[in-house]
Design a binder for these strands. Structure first.
Lengths: 208, 208, 208, 208
DNA sequence: AATGAATGAGTATTCATTCAT
DNA sequence: GATGAATGAATACTCATTCAT
């Protein structure tokens, strides 16, 4: 990566970080491109050299942030979790636990992701994000970790979908507003439910 | 109710319906107040006699639509469902089934509610909506139907929260985009999971 | 004055008082007719039964307030001032002194009058104000007090004009902001200047 | 100054001139920003690159116009007035005379300044006006001309204040409406009064 | 006389986007 | 590549005034 390219990547990163800061502080609608550019220390016109418009940077940002969170979670589980010894449900719960803790620690991130993440963006994932080429995309890393393919789980994608949606939708109010209960109260129920979801997909189990 | 009040209620309803139409067709951000007013056949200034701004009408609309859906569902279950003979899980599943079918039949409603409904708005519910006085609010109707209080379920509000979030978040992509699977494929998993959630709250059961 | 008329006069007075309150608090431009009416406890449409528009009520108010101030001043001087024994300059200074004190005590009144009073309105005076008929207008009362006509002063109207403009323009900043000096510092200079103005008009004196 | 900056200064000047024209013709309240921009031949949005709002341009305009008038007057007196030979009172009267004549010749300027100039704005003066740096500000030029500091006058700022307010308030009706007398009739009285004001501040004189 | 619902013209202000430098 | 001046469409919101009741 040459000096100029580095410079470009830095500008892009600066824009992404500034945009994240503003989007989470003031909301996407209330943030103007002029503001992002000014705050990032570049000229307004320069923004358009890097992103098509506000929604472009927002989508990139969501993929980037959600992807980073997942990859971090996967790495942590791998490092500290004696991954191989744990059963799949335990590995998933460890992952979810890490993510919940990360979201509790960074409520701006929670707000931003929950309000904007959709399964579609999740699927497209980071591929068009910062590192435009190379780099296994995060979903692979994620699937690999879970070794889902090796274990003959039924409809593994549905299983991931159900868990993802369940966790992200139930955490939002619990973490932000302790509604209808705080996270500590809620977590046992959430974990229990996740186990129930996984069970349905176990090789020998059948749904309903 | 005098002639004038009748007229006012009609105007308000007309505005709500028009706004719903536009919000679901073009999106909330892309809809201007001028447009709502024009489409509803009233003057721009008149809008402000009924709603404070676009977000006011949007919130009223969400409560109103979500409330109506729930009340309809509850009534249907009561009428056709031999409510008394059914166990609580079966009653809840019947309710969810009705709602899923209603959302499948009205995808605009699904898009609008899913994108905008939050647990907070759900809790406040319809009380400040159209019928400003009288009328038991819909949440009561809903709780009554479930007879939750009589059955000594553990943390019933958490149970409702988990089910609500789980259903609304998983249905969105499934109904609209058949992602990651169509509704028919998904439903057994969803129902099974709901039963698992309820089980945790049964009088003798314990969570995790 | 019948009961209905009294009612009308009360409504008018209520409107005037409310308008004065709002004009001095928020400024004329920033006060809407709807606000005046609401604050006065009458319907918006009713406003138009009493005043043509906002500028109509503002002008009426200026005449009314300025007139009241002058008449009060004249009466005070007459009562407590041993008017007859005082020379004309002394009578005028007593009058000015009373007015300055009144304006110091009621800065809203000062702001309102100074910003809006013009010699034109002063001349038209109260005649179209509240008491639409009868009642010698306040300027007569004022001239009478000064007995200007009896004393053969040269160009008495110019004299009054010079004094009025001088006092009202110099008091504004002094009272409100103590700029460029507070009233106590300024007053000797103002009084001395007024005496100089009067001297030019004395029967035997000549200007310049 | 680069080409762009030159262009910017021209746009600003164009806006100021257009705004003055409209403000004096139609009044400040009745002039919209859209109108100023259109008349100045620029886009509506461009206005906001140069001024914050209508009141910003109005204030800048007052300082600018009043400052220009004073500086012009001071220069004229210096050039044609044998300044050094004239006594202070004569210098001041020459200045006032020039200003009165200028205002008689440009009644729009008179209306605009009289209705809007306050001692506060006068004090802040032109410093933030067009020429943002350099340029002795006009008050200095003015004070210098009068050589007030050298002559040990008592409370010179009060003296200037009294004269300024007296002249500007008495000229308004006289020039515009010949009320209560035309300028020629009034001028001897005004000049005489100014001399009386100055006298109070003379080194050996005492007020009152 | 009194009301207040309805009107719609009017205005300030923002902002994404372009393009000459 | 980078800049930032210029644009003008878009939009929210206000408010004086009317008029049917």
């Amino acid at each position: 990566m040459g000096k100029i390219d580095l410079n470009k990547t830095q500008k892009k990163l600066s824009l992404l970080n500034t945009a994240f800061e503003l989007f989470t502080t003031k909301g996407v609608n209330e943030t103007s491109i002029a503001e992002i550019a000014k705050e990032a220390g570049i000229a307004k016109g320069t923004f358009y050299l890097y992103f098509r418009d506000k929604y472009d940077i927002r989508n990139k940002l969501i993929s980037y942030k959600a992807g980073t969170l997942l990859i971090d979670a996967a790495e942590q589980v791998k490092l500290h979790g004696h991954t191989e010894q744990l059963s799949l449900p335990d590995r998933i719960l460890a992952l979810v636990d890490y993510i919940i803790k990360a979201l509790q620690a960074d409520k701006n991130l929670l707000m931003f992701i929950s309000k904007n993440l959709s399964w579609g963006i999740f699927r497209e994932s980071v591929q068009d994000s910062l590192q435009e080429e190379g780099d296994d995309n995060f979903k692979n890393a994620f699937y690999d970790l879970l070794s889902l393919t090796e274990e003959n789980y039924k409809d593994p994608e549905i299983m991931i979908y159900l868990i993802t949606e369940f966790v992200s939708s139930t955490c939002y109010n619990a973490i932000l507003y302790s509604e209808p209960a705080d996270m500590d109260t809620l977590k046992p129920y959430i974990f229990h439910t996740i186990r129930a979801i996984i069970e349905q997909h176990e090789p020998k189990a059948s749904a309903e």
